[in-house]
């Protein structure tokens, strides 16, 4: 599998998770259906990944989604207001800073991070930058950037794109999503949000490993192969002897 294809696939998966964890508006559900169809068509090679069982379960559940009013009611009960217990609020600061002493600062830093990448929260969202859907969408954006640099065969930029993703995952999503997912799974049982949270947890946990391993693999390569010594990567289908070929 080419790195570009993998990055594009991951971009779509992050996008799908982002859409699922937003309030189920009609337009969003239509996009979910489209993204799901695209991903289902590409599912076969994914059987090699350990999150495949959770992923397959999610695709099955998405194919048989409740009608919108029922879904809206579920969304409110799971994420916003649960009359039978505490809801699983979908915000990072709730889990990373339970005392809410640095929540404002955390949110401001996230907004700055998005702005540095040339992004801003859509006014229609009317939500906070540490909402799970926003963080997932940002990862989707980073994957898209990665896919673009792979398509242009810019190796060093590709490595940097992976480093950015590893950094964002380590500082944000992996710090709180597992705890949040566990909470949803215990509260929602077999519901769509429980299935989605479990799949997101499995996927992100694997993604962190995958990115880390790819980076370690690149680190093992000769400096010259990465173009760090002013030497470009050969585009020829030839072995590199002790470095790489000048074009």
């Amino acid at each position: 599998m080419r790195l570009e294809d993998l990055a594009r696939w991951r971009q779509l998966v992050y996008r799908l998770f982002s859409l699922i964890f937003l309030y189920p508006e009609e337009e969003r559900l239509e996009t979910v259906a489209i993204v799901t169809a695209v991903l289902r068509a590409q599912s076969a090679p994914m059987a090699r990944f350990p999150f495949f069982p959770q992923w397959r379960r999610l695709l099955t559940s998405l194919a048989d989604l409740d009608a919108r009013p029922a879904l809206e009611e579920k969304y409110v009960r799971v994420f916003l207001h649960n009359p039978e217990g505490a809801p699983s609020l979908p915000y990072e600061s709730v889990y990373v800073d339970p005392g809410r002493q640095a929540a404002g600062w955390m949110v401001a830093m996230l907004e700055r991070e998005y702005a540095a990448a040339g992004l801003a929260l859509a006014p229609s969202l009317k939500d906070l930058p540490d909402h799970v859907a926003v963080e997932l969408e940002f990862m989707s954006f980073l994957c898209r950037q990665e896919a673009e640099v792979w398509s242009r065969e810019l190796l060093q930029d590709g490595v940097q794109a992976l480093e950015r993703q590893a950094d964002f995952l380590a500082r944000h999503l992996t710090r709180w999503l597992p705890r949040w997912a566990r909470q949803i799974i215990s509260a929602d049982g077999e519901g769509i949000y429980s299935v989605a949270a479990e799949a997101a947890w499995a996927f992100i946990s694997h993604d962190q490993d995958l990115i880390g391993s790819l980076l370690a693999q690149f680190q093992k390569m000769p400096e010259a192969a990465l173009g760090r010594k002013g030497c470009q990567v050969s585009l020829e289908e030839r072995p590199c002897s002790g470095g790489c070929h000048a074009p």
Binding site: F51, F203, H206, Q217, A225
Partner: peptide, 24 residues
């Protein structure tokens, strides 16, 4: 899912274009 550690199968040492842009 957290109990699966990923590893890449060791490959040929040669660094080719295809190798660089492919997931091992």
């Amino acid at each position: 899912p957290e109990q699966a550690k990923l590893y890449f199968l060791p490959q040929d040492e040669r660094v080719t274009r295809r190798f660089l842009f492919t997931v091992p």
